[in-house]
Nucleic acid binder design. Sequence first.
DNA 1: CCAACCATGTAAGCTGTTACATGATTGA
DNA 2: TCAATCATGTAACAGCTTACATGGTTGG
Lengths: 169, 169
Amino acid sequence: MTPLGYALLGLVQMQPRSGYALRKVFETTPLGGYSSSPGSIYPALKSLEKAALLVARDPSGKRGKGEYHLTAEGERLLHAWLASPIGDLGEAMLRFAFLRDDDRDATLTFLDAFLSAAESELAGLEAFLAGDGAKDLPARGRIAVEHGLRQLQASADWARWTREQYSTD
Amino acid sequence: MTPLGYALLGLVQMQPRSGYALRKVFETTPLGGYSSSPGSIYPALKSLEKAALLVARDPSGKRGKGEYHLTAEGERLLHAWLASPIGDLGEAMLRFAFLRDDDRDATLTFLDAFLSAAESELAGLEAFLAGDGAKDLPARGRIAVEHGLRQLQASADWARWTREQYSTD
DNA sequence: CCAACCATGTAAGCTGTTACATGATTGA
DNA sequence: TCAATCATGTAACAGCTTACATGGTTGG
């Protein structure tokens, strides 16, 4: 399963949509970073259908092939993904976008894990700068790494800020 | 040309290196994000060689195939890339890492362009949040977009901070 | 001498990009 | 009626990932 696949499952879970409607979401929102154009979305939908994670139903009138719905298996897979340990921070943000709105516990757990991951990556970059590995990079490389540090700090800040919004205690 | 290709050209321009040495750089620095393992690097080197952007020379002793050097064409292409207009910010950071250390003008030009690009993306995200496009995203989607805003702000801050370091006036 | 590292590759498979193709329907 | 948009696809190609394969050399 690719990120695009999970994004499609997540959008369909929010509400059943046709392939075209899904395509539009990617064209008109920042989700667009995960795809572009029919050439990726339709084949991806087809493969999700073949894997029995989605089904197309109820063509209204005779146009198109109807709207996609999650199968039980698709739902299972989506939730497993949402609950899986955090690896890549970018993928984690995609997951966050599809976390259930009402599940405060899952949200807080996620944010804690996200924060840990960001802090651990931060520590890694700092160790790299402190060590001698940086000698293989050009002089500008260190400044580029500084950019990475700031990005990770922003991620960590976001996690702390968001956590406060969600914790009622 | 892929980002990996440019990264290889840039590293070779810094100093001639063998395929193995290049591989090590990717394994031990944050540049690793652009590649992984022999399966991508060696084929990429081969294609750069076939395109006459790199040549392997001077096998010291009989081990390996020697070190890669830039051809005139390779150097031309690398510099064209370094000077090209900024599209993707991630790719732009890779370029920054390989900008010539002594070229203050190019650096300042780059940083200005980078800042503009970041600010323009910021404006885009803010417009998206203000508009009605956000209705297609789940509730958490807006908070995820907030993360994107913070990332772009961090990029813009980095550019301003770095610009100050480099401007002597 | 044996493990670790030097050093380079190949092959299968999946995904995504780009570009093209098709036909229906709606609004001006 | 003509352009735009709805709606869905296919085909060629490039690139990366994973996994496997192969030998030489150095250090303990």
